[in-house]
Write a protein that binds this DNA or RNA. Structure first.
Lengths: 136, 136
DNA sequence: ATCTATGCAAAGACTTTGCATTTTT
DNA sequence: AAAAATGCAAAGTCTTTGCATAGAT
């Protein structure tokens, strides 16, 4: 749908060739790359790009709210460009692959006051676990 | 309630002084320590204990299913001794503190077949996010 | 006596940082 | 020209590993 690059341009994000290739690599659905995977793919388009820049850029995109950081167990963080559309994740317990899934009914379970321990709630994540077809 | 140490003894777990202090440190409710925190506290009871042993022991407890690994964002993994009782986590977005919360209604949302992408589902985690009283 | 856990120190995976240089606006 | 991004290399955090020694059953 909406193009990450366009959205960023619209927000007046200073554009460089490095940032452009990072945004290109991240664009799409069911994209959940690690920083290193982003670096490898970005380097195919722009060989000189450094790992540091990839990390910087990913950090920026997260701050801008355009990309979400997803941490699955002990593995490297993954970056999900679907920050604008609420969704949940289905994670393969074997290989770590992630698919986006979309709420069906009303999965946003609320927490009763007695269970809040004084916290100010901001939301809830749901992560489904299972084994993907490739690993089964 | 149930004592972690007792449960482990009952399962014929080879007991050493190191393992004993790790189990003691982990025992309780709302305990979600990092490996390093476990090491510090264990070392107060048994100064010679090494980090490697703490990591080994935590890994064992996870394999035995007596302790759960909880990964919150990019921080170090935390270890939760409440593996036996189903519960969810309420995480402070500011400081990372975790509280256990217990299902009220039926929070286990099911995923419709059309959204499974061929995965064999094994379960779902719910994590509530918010700001804890200390950080607010 | 046998079998396993421990501890050290080194390596490894992932990420961040400081600073001089280059690029964008 | 001013402001900000890049890249390098070094350091930092968290975790794992190999192997000789110590300890549990």
């Amino acid at each position: 749908m909406s193009d990450l690059l366009e959205r960023l341009r619209g927000r007046g994000w200073r554009m460089t060739s490095q940032r452009r290739v990072v945004a290109e690599v991240l664009n799409g659905d069911h994209v959940h790359l690690t920083a290193d995977e982003v670096h490898v793919r970005a380097a195919r388009l722009l060989p000189e790009i450094s790992r540091a820049t990839v990390y910087n850029t990913l950090g920026e995109l997260v701050l801008l709210g355009e990309v979400m950081e997803v941490s699955t167990d002990g593995r490297a963080k993954r970056y999900d460009p679907n920050a604008h559309r609420p969704h949940q994740h289905l994670v393969c317990s074997r290989c770590g692959t992630i698919r986006d899934v979309h709420p069906t009914g009303d999965p946003l379970v609320d927490l009763p006051p007695g269970e809040r321990f004084g916290f100010t709630l901001s939301g809830a994540d749901v992560t489904y676990r299972g084994v993907c077809p490739a690993c089964a």
